[in-house]
């Protein structure tokens, strides 16, 4: 384990050093991200404020799939946090897999005396996304108490666990698609389709029509990425829901491990 820990520290140390060479890019990323969040909140508000401009009266409180404005903001915050984690961690690492395959440098990774999935998944960090994660946390902390959440230690621990489960599911999905580039070097855009589909997670899953809701829970588990952690933050997660999220996380992570082993078997028997 010690070797993995030290390697991880080295990986991220070098990544930070590399990024600081592009300060202007970091600034632009920050700006784009803040504008993005503002725009998302604006679109979300459209569901709560009538088009004629009058503020929603007490008797005509609008809801989105049964969620109030503050509750929906928590979902938005969880989405921002996860999206930040994806920009910081998943996109730079898993996006590089296809480059490794195309340029043949995957060979170097496979010859290292360290787990290749670990290497590929943690090689670098893009710190620009860290501030997006901070924004997400800020939004959650602002909106959760206003939505009536009591932030007690147990509830917080469950919420953290659910966030972690969401992150693991997201990682596994992304890794599965990225690893398939071993076969389909040309279809590296598959992760873009995933990203587009994941934007569904900006909104509570109950806001969608029933058919789509099922799809977003079971096939593309967007529900476990944002809605379930938001429920946990609001103190509404039932034990069944928590159990289902944990099982989902475990299954998808094992699937990603198994798939990588399968992909490597193909790579090592077919590559030239």
């Amino acid at each position: 384990m010690g070797r993995y820990w030290l390697t991880l520290r080295r990986f991220w140390g070098t990544a930070l050093a590399g990024q600081l060479e592009y300060q202007l890019n970091v600034l632009i990323d920050l700006l784009a991200m803040a504008a993005n969040l503002a725009g998302s909140l604006f679109i979300l508000s459209l569901f709560f404020i009538p088009a004629d401009g009058s503020a929603a009266g007490a008797d005509a409180v609008r809801r989105l799939g049964g969620w109030s404005w503050e509750e929906a903001l928590v979902v938005q915050g969880v989405y921002t946090l996860l999206d930040g984690a994806a920009s910081t961690w998943l996109r730079p690492n898993l996006g590089a897999i296809v480059t490794h395959v195309r340029e043949g440098t995957l060979d170097f990774v496979l010859l290292k005396p360290i787990d290749s999935q670990f290497w590929l998944s943690s090689r670098t960090l893009a710190p620009a996304g860290l501030s997006e994660m901070a924004l997400g946390v800020g939004l959650i902390l602002w909106a959760a108490p206003r939505a009536g959440a009591q932030l007690q230690p147990v509830a917080l621990a469950v919420a953290a666990l659910m966030l972690l489960a969401g992150l693991v599911i997201l990682y596994s999905l992304w890794f599965l698609l990225a690893a398939s580039s071993i076969w389909f070097v040309k279809t590296w855009n598959a992760t873009e389709v995933l990203r587009a589909a994941l934007t569904a997670g900006r909104f509570p899953v109950s806001a969608y029509p029933p058919g789509l809701r099922l799809l977003l829970t079971l096939v593309l588990p967007v529900a476990f990425l944002t809605t379930v952690p938001a429920e946990a933050i609001l103190g509404r997660a039932t034990p069944t829901l928590v159990g289902a999220a944990l099982v989902m996380a475990l299954v998808s992570f094992s699937l990603s491990r198994a798939f990588w082993r399968f992909a490597l078997r193909y790579y090592t028997s077919a590559s030239s």
């Binding site: 009538p50 809801r63 989105l64 799939g65 909104f203 806001a207 029509p209």
Partner: peptide
């Protein structure tokens, strides 16, 4: 999908 479900 969202707009068709929402009252808005």
């Amino acid at each position: 999908a969202l707009w068709s479900e929402a009252p808005a």
